[in-house]
């Protein structure tokens, strides 16, 4: 099977006044053609850095230490400016996290989404607007023709996120990268969006990479799941592997904390105790050691091995599992 996207051994650091923050360390990830891959992890685990790296829009204090991000066998990180611009918004479309600030505040939505279609030379202005109207209908924006001439602040947060998804879908991309695409939406809207994304996957043969902390989203939509913690991938597998046979203690803890899978009535939602380690000086052993319930002496001293659980499709890094 071909991969739409392949990330090999990616490490990215941030230069800050108080030292170098090792935001991503040796991340490996594959997004197969036509599949949906979910990246799950709590805030600060490096999800957003990964996303910025995929479209080569890292902030200027980021340093790529090593690794490659391959799209059609070309490394995105060393791509020419010209090729990059074709990549962005044509091959890879993105939906960003914060719907309130996604759009330019002083231009109408119509102007912006028309602009975003600049790659489609065969569409004239009227056709571009028509496309937007179609997409808006698809994502459930009432009275789309009128709303094209409105400014972003005249829409609710949920509507803006739907428009952001519509903008990405307009491109008919090979890969759609969505950063927390449903966080700002209410439950019914969320279901609609998930349905939309699945439909897109089926109709267009496009791959989707979804970054989220919401396990429900990945369960609904994804074929593969990557669990990230503190800048590292700790477990990877199919959706069944992760939900029914979780191996890494962090994955297990994450699943236990999801309110949707709670089996008993409880006064307090369960949490994972402790905090993410300081990424300026990550621990020599396992990054999860300080919060792990099964921690042993070995965990704090040596880096955990990769444990293959099913022919390279499902693996995790853990001393405990390797025993």
């Amino acid at each position: 099977m071909n991969n739409a996207l392949e990330i090999n051994n990616l490490s990215i650091h941030y230069q800050t006044d108080s030292g170098e923050v090792r935001a991503l360390r040796n991340v490996n990830l594959k997004v197969p053609d036509g599949k949906v891959v979910g990246i799950v992890g709590e805030s600060g685990c490096g999800k957003s850095t990964l996303m910025s790296a995929i479209i080569n829009l890292l902030s200027e204090n980021a340093i790529v230490k090593n690794g490659k991000i391959l799209f059609e066998n070309t490394d995105i990180l060393t791509m020419s400016k010209h090729r990059l611009r074709k990549l962005r918004g044509y091959d890879i479309a993105t939906v960003f996290q914060d719907p309130m600030t996604t759009f330019n505040p002083v231009m109408t939505i119509g102007q912006q989404l028309t602009d975003f279609q600049h790659r489609f030379k065969e569409r004239n202005r009227q056709q571009k607007r028509q496309k937007i109207i179609e997409m808006f209908e698809l994502v459930g924006i009432p009275d789309p023709a009128q709303r094209l001439n409105q400014f972003p602040h005249e829409f609710s947060g949920g509507m803006r996120q739907r428009m952001a998804i519509a903008a990405a879908l307009l491109m008919n991309p090979r890969l759609l990268v969505a950063d927390e695409p449903t966080t700002a939406l209410d439950v019914t809207m969320e279901a609609q969006i998930l349905h939309l994304l699945r439909k897109m996957k089926n109709d267009f043969n496009g791959s989707i990479l979804i970054i989220t902390h919401h396990l429900g989203v990945v369960a609904e939509l994804c074929d593969y799941i990557t669990v990230m913690y503190a800048g590292e991938v700790v477990e990877q597998g199919t959706v069944e592997d992760i939900f029914y046979r979780p191996s890494h203690p962090y994955t297990k803890a994450l699943l236990e904390c999801d309110p949707a899978v709670l089996k008993r009535k409880t006064r307090y939602l369960p949490t994972i105790k402790g905090r993410i380690p300081d990424l300026r000086t990550p621990p020599p052993g396992c990054v999860f050691a300080n919060r792990c319930s099964k921690v042993s002496a070995q965990c704090t001293q040596t880096a955990p091995p990769v444990v293959d659980l099913s022919d390279g499709n499902h693996w995790c890094i853990c001393h405990e599992v390797s025993k």
Binding site: R85, K86, G89, Q112, A164
Partner: peptide, 14 residues
Amino acid sequence: GEQHIRTARAFGLS
């Protein structure tokens, strides 16, 4: 530095 500029760039605008 604002987010909407990142959006515009992410859609490949020069």
